[in-house]
Design a protein around this nucleic acid. Structure first.
Length: 413
DNA sequence: TCTGGGGTCCTAGGACCC
DNA sequence: TCTGGGGTCCTAGGACCC
């Protein structure tokens, strides 16, 4: 192989190090937002989440302030555990110490987030919003490795001064490393990992701290003796793939500092869904009513977004925690509340006997159109077919269901 | 300890086509 | 009569993230 060819090949798998990625991560964002409008919560343990007022408590913690974390409350923790560790107090006058449990107001958090992101945008060549409290910034064109520290400090200061919340920042030549770096000096911290230092920075970290390693993978890695990112990095690609599957190949690259992804703005959503936990029930009437509610809510959001969907699905979680999904694809995209509800209900029939604790409705295979575009009415099922289908429903008997137990859906797709 | 609600991405089997 | 291989679509489930 010619030397030039070899160099080309090497370039493909070696980080070019010419990218400067900044990961911005707000500290305890929901709790910080609450403190903006309720300064008396400053310094107090604050927990944001739902279901703490249910009996028994259900749901999970969305955000816990650092004061609440002192008691062992963590985000994503079941609310029941949080309440065991940190009892709830009703008001500041409540003589019993405890934590402030708040339901949270997403609309308000979104407004604060928008202020933060607007500032961040002015610091970025390209900005990718990951969630309400997190973003990647490509700053390659607007600063340099020599000036990055001052640059990051300025961004943090401007957010703090004009919005009043604190952020942590990680900077690295790859997205995956920047993500880990922002966690490193939390809260209100900056961590800069320069080109060439990525592997050494990641090596001592527990494998579970790598982005993309969840509880299942962490367990599998540790059982096989891979405790740290460095342990994974020391395997050959072949070993990593053989022992942990193809998914490990990407992780194996990441822990060695190889990640060629670039910061790109987020595109259109792929699906729109709504789900709801309920008191476990076998009552088919209750289930149907919930599905109808959810379908109507999904429809509202779909309608406000000028989007059609081609696939309609439901999610049914049976006790103890068995997740089932069913979906049905049409021939062409539609936006049709009636059809959405009816198909969702059809898909539910299979689960009429089971004990259900959670239900969801989802649309996917989305097709966006701007308001001015002419509707593709020819793709909508003609009313005659809907009418035909309705009459079939009335006459439907059990032997019209397939032997697999799946419902028979009208084949107008 | 027992799991909310919103998503994304991946895998794998089967149907179907050429 | 027996039956290759590649590609795409659909569906279900699962891991993971915030």
């Amino acid at each position: 192989m010619a030397k030039a060819d070899r160099e080309q090949l090497v370039k493909k798998v070696t980080p070019t190090n010419d990218q400067i990625v900044l990961h911005l991560d707000m500290d305890c964002f929901f709790a910080a937002c609450e403190r903006l409008r309720r300064p008396e919560l400053e310094g107090e343990p604050v927990v944001i989440g739902g279901g703490f007022d249910k009996e028994p408590p259900r749901g999970a913690v969305a955000t816990a302030s650092y004061e609440a974390r002192e008691y062992g409350v963590e985000s994503a923790q079941p609310m029941k555990i949080a309440l065991d560790r940190l009892p709830r107090r009703e008001s500041i006058d409540d003589p019993d110490a405890g934590g402030y449990y708040l339901k949270g107001e997403h609309e308000f958090y979104k407004e604060v987030s928008q202020e933060v992101m607007s500032i961040a945008e002015t610091y970025a060549g390209t900005l990718r919003r990951i969630s309400i409290d997190e973003a990647y910034l490509d700053v390659t064109q607007v600063t340099s490795w020599d000036t990055i520290e001052v640059y990051a400090k300025e961004l943090k200061m401007e957010i703090q001064e004009s919005v009043g919340v604190t952020a942590s920042i990680g900077v690295a030549p790859t997205m995956s490393c920047a993500k880990v770096a922002s966690e490193y000096n939390k809260p209100d911290g900056i961590c800069i990992v320069r080109p060439g230092d990525v592997k050494a920075f990641l090596s001592p970290l527990s494998i579970g701290e790598i982005h993309g390693v969840g509880p299942v993978s962490e367990d599998a890695f540790k059982k096989a003796g891979v405790e740290t990112a460095g342990d994974l990095a020391s395997l050959t690609t072949q070993q990593a793939a053989d022992r942990f599957g193809s998914n490990a190949i990407t992780l194996h690259e990441r822990v060695r500092g190889i990640d060629t992804r670039e910061v790109e703005p987020v595109g259109k959503p792929k699906s729109i869904s709504k789900e709801k936990s309920i008191d476990a029930t076998t009552n088919i009437g209750t289930k149907r009513a919930i599905i109808q509610q959810l379908a109507s809510k999904v429809n509202k959001r779909v309608a406000s977004k000028s989007v059609r969907y081609r696939t309609i699905g439901i999610k049914v979680v049976e006790t103890p925690f068995e997740v089932n999904t069913r979906e049905y694809s049409l021939h062409g995209p539609v936006q049709d509340p009636l059809l959405l509800e009816e198909i969702a209900l059809e898909l539910l029939i299979e689960f009429e006997a089971g004990e259900v604790r959670k239900l969801g409705v989802r649309v996917s295979n989305l097709d966006f159109f701007d308001g001015e575009q002419i509707r593709f009415d020819d793709w909508d099922p003609p009313p005659s077919i809907i009418a035909d289908r309705k009459s079939k429903h009335c006459k439907r008997t059990d032997d019209q269901r397939s032997i697999s137990g799946q419902t028979t859906l009208p084949d107008f797709r």
